[in-house]
Design a protein around this nucleic acid. Structure first.
Length: 347
DNA sequence: TGGATTTGACCCAA
DNA sequence: TTGGGTCAAATCCA
């Protein structure tokens, strides 16, 4: 391996470890967390760029890097999904230069003129309308199905680079399964906008939706707008009923990633909650079961992912499987310890 | 045959 | 009035 890949890998791992060690001290400085995550992603993106003509081994590494990059960005996305917008650092999401793979900016309105308008009420995970499977809205029911175009605090936009391999017509996996329900030509845009909703919308009334549109200026880049939060995986049954594609990042999010409750009333330590709750479901416990106070052994998630990624010696198994089985094992261990402690206290 | 996608029409916020 | 968002019938596909 040459072409500066190793230094970049080291840099990425180093950044991950720094993030790990700094997390307990950063408190609610989520801008710092964001910056750090983006530096990590940039480092691994640099690796991606340098891995051109990949051998099999390098290709495996590339898949690992891609998975880690996507996982990191998804974690970052999940994090921001739960945060009041004042925690965001829009400047850090600027994708105007450097290795651009995914960049995220909070969207407070549909026009740039409204950028900076604080999200009214800071509502998280605003559920859209009433019954998403309610069929065509009658005049009375339409009042319960507001068609928000602006001021939707749960609206987030990411720019996603088209896949380099395979079908470049579709945006990369983002960890969820989506069902396309519409496509529309958009005025002033060369490319149509596609509308997706969560596959589990009917089963679990999951309100999550996304819009995918190719950029006019860069057809190799998609702008993906997410609306609503996934509630399907907070269901006790959802993860086991509809396992995602095993070979995709779907493993990442569709596994025990509990998404934010609409009424998160815990402004302090929010990011700690993000880190502690995301992978703490293991056996189906909901976010409400997340420990109130973060434990320091819950922070090294990123480092764990990096370690597993680079220590998995070319296994044919999916890297995300490895990563999250590792996390699950950690979680199992935690659960066993907690149950043991509980039993111990009973005695 | 059932689930996913396509597509034209409808609804409604701006 | 316009155009974005959604619905649902038609179609495709495994």
């Amino acid at each position: 391996m040459d072409n500066g890949i190793v230094p970049l890998l080291r840099q990425g791992c180093q950044l991950a470890r720094e993030l790990e060690s700094n997390l307990p001290n950063w408190g609610d400085r989520l801008d710092l967390v964001t910056d750090s995550c983006q530096q990590i992603v940039s480092a691994f993106n640099g690796v991606l760029v340098r891995i051109g003509n990949a051998s099999d081994h390098q290709r495996q590494m590339q898949e690992n890097v891609t998975s880690f990059t996507q996982a990191t960005m998804m974690l970052l996305q999940q994090q921001q999904q739960q945060l009041p917008q004042q925690y965001y650092n829009p400047g850090a999401a600027d994708n105007s230069g450097g290795a651009r793979s995914m960049a995220e900016t909070p969207v407070s309105g549909s026009s740039g003129a409204e950028a900076g308008v604080p999200a009214a009420g800071g509502q998280f995970g605003a559920r859209e309308g009433s019954d998403p499977a309610g069929g065509r809205a009658s005049p009375s029911s339409s009042a319960q199905r507001p068609r928000r175009r602006q001021d939707d605090p749960s609206r987030r936009t990411v720019t996603v680079e088209a896949p380099r391999f395979g079908n470049t017509e579709i945006p990369p996996e983002d960890g969820f399964t989506w069902k396309k329900y519409g496509q529309k030509e958009i005025l002033g845009s060369l490319y149509p906008r596609s509308y997706y909703r969560c596959t589990h919308q009917k089963l679990y009334h999951c309100p999550a939706k996304k819009q995918v549109q190719r950029l006019d200026s860069d057809p190799h880049t998609f702008q993906v707008t997410y609306r609503g939060n996934h509630t399907c995986h907070m269901s006790l049954t959802a993860p086991s009923i509809s396992p995602p594609q095993p070979s995709t990042l779907g493993m990442v999010i569709s596994q025990p990633l509990p998404l934010p409750q609409p009424s998160l009333g815990q402004p302090s330590g929010t990011h700690s909650q993000w880190l502690s709750m995301d992978f703490s479901l293991g056996s189906g416990a909901g976010p409400s079961s997340a420990p109130a106070a973060p434990r320091e052994d819950q922070y090294p998630l990123v480092a764990v992912m990096a370690d597993v990624m680079f220590n998995s010696s070319g296994s044919s198994s999916n890297s995300m499987d490895t990563i999250f089985s590792s996390i699950d094992h950690r979680d199992d261990h935690d659960q066993r310890r907690q149950s043991w402690e509980a039993g111990d206290k009973k005695d």
